[in-house]
Amino acid sequence: MWSPELFRAARGVALALVLPLALSGCLRPLYAEAPSGGTVQEKLSGIIVDEVKDRIGHYLVEELRFNLDGSGAPAKPRYRLAMEVKETVSTAIISSQTGRAESATVTANVAFTLKAIGTDETVLTGRAYASASYDRSSQRFADVRAARDAEIRIAQQAADQIRTRIAAHFATKG
């Protein structure tokens, strides 16, 4: 005989097996063909990245240029990506003996705008946020290099966020 506990367990197993099958048609790979035709990668390779002043901006632009189209093959420019980077450095730990900061955190807030070339229509706007910490020492050049490494890590994180948001936009809206 079927007990209420066994019936609930069987119903739960059946639901667990049927639900993924019902939702499987709702998913589409990110880099599959876009609804408007073409692939997301073709659209990403047609993005021109504008220059950004300062060092972290340079790292960000270079990361995005490689991430959007690392093939080196020329593509027809369709979009222009403009960015504004705001960088801050904060210190959380101060040594009581030396009065110097022992570590620092670099944060970057990147506002980006993707516009269509020719029509100058805004396709997508958004923000990317990244932070990285580094240790400070009494060696000045080691501090400079550690800060620069943190900026490079931030640029990589922000570039990944921006590329993913743009790719998701193209995959869903074309």
Rank of each mutant, 00 (worst) to 15 (best):
I166N: 05
R145L: 15
K115W: 01
Q139N: 15
T164D: 14
E102D: 09
R127M: 10
R153A: 13
R165M: 11
D160I: 11
R163E: 11
L124D: 07
G118F: 05
N109Q: 14
S103L: 03
A167I: 07
D135E: 13
N109I: 13
I117S: 10
A132S: 09
A158M: 02
A111F: 14
S133K: 06
I162C: 01
A142G: 11
L124H: 10
A159T: 09
V110W: 04
D143W: 03
A142D: 11
D149C: 04
E102S: 10
T107D: 03
D149K: 08
V106S: 05
I166C: 06
D143C: 11
A159L: 06
D120S: 14
A111K: 15
V106G: 01
A108R: 00
A111Q: 13
D160R: 08
A132E: 09
A142P: 11
R148Q: 15
E102W: 00
T113Q: 12
Q139A: 14
A104M: 02
T122Q: 10
R127V: 11
D120H: 12
F112T: 07
K115A: 07
S137Y: 01
A142R: 12
D143N: 15
A147K: 12
I117H: 11
T125A: 04
A159K: 03
R136A: 01
A155Q: 03
A128N: 05
T122C: 06
